[in-house]
Write a protein that binds this DNA or RNA. Sequence first.
DNA 1: CATATTCAGGAATTATGGTACCTTTATTCC
DNA 2: GGAATAAAGGTACCATAATTCCTGAATATG
Lengths: 141, 141
Amino acid sequence: MAGLFRISEAVSIAFHGMGLLAVRGARMSGHEIANAICVSEAHLLKVFQRLARAGLVHSTRGPGGGFEITEDPRAVTLFRVYEAIEGTAECGVCLLGTTTCPFGRCIFGGETERMEKEFLDYLHRVTLADLSAKDEGGTNA
Amino acid sequence: MAGLFRISEAVSIAFHGMGLLAVRGARMSGHEIANAICVSEAHLLKVFQRLARAGLVHSTRGPGGGFEITEDPRAVTLFRVYEAIEGTAECGVCLLGTTTCPFGRCIFGGETERMEKEFLDYLHRVTLADLSAKDEGGTNA
DNA sequence: CATATTCAGGAATTATGGTACCTTTATTCC
DNA sequence: GGAATAAAGGTACCATAATTCCTGAATATG
Ligand code: FES
Ligand code: FES
């Protein structure tokens, strides 16, 4: 049940919701989105609230309202979505903070840093358009 | 301040503490270890309690007591330390659970799974002895 | 045997993340 | 125009996990 990456349910909801919006290409209400991805509507709403504040989606109130992606999905990286929810993701030098270490240098010797960077690069590279492209049998970076 | 990997402070303490014990090769009290790695003594004690229960260290009470590694450091992988603290670390198929997904297949297309596996492999590969070996030739506290 | 030292275990506290509920805005239909 | 309804915004609450604190038990020492 673990999951080695620090992906909260909130981020997962953001990825899935944004991906869905990108595929549909049309405005959807929070209720619709939550139903489509089988997730708590309350939580999804809160997540999209943050996405809206970050400017990644535009929200419209009232009947017929909902959320729509503001930019071209090809221009929106997963990293921006992640950042909107979790705040800035720095991949530090070490797994622990940079507090004084009993070892001269980091005992992980930069290996973990490299792997973190790899994940970060992935988030930077993949866009919402890539996600929807996957659904059409296409390939992906 | 983020850190992409789900490494709690507890695990970080376990890695550093065990690494230190491996380097020293001698019994150390919780107080000593905590001071050496600049970390809450209360928390370290709690962490080592779990390591003791998992059989990774042997604890001795009373004056002169403390903790010592039970096995050859070359035989103890970081994964076993991680597992002793966090419980079994499964790297699931997707970042979200396996609940119904709006997309036909996982939108991450196995990339994230591969990266999780890579990290897991790293934890399986590196032993406490490797950590101390890194220290040879470097400065140490 | 008294006493100091050190870990064990659980209780209390704090922090985080998720949920429920009420408020505001906008549309639609009389 | 006003009432009713649909939808997002915001706040307060709750659950769970992480951390600290406190008391007790074991062991060495004089
Ligand atoms: S900071 Fe201690 S090992 Fe990296
Ligand atoms: S389960 Fe939905 S994308 Fe992986």
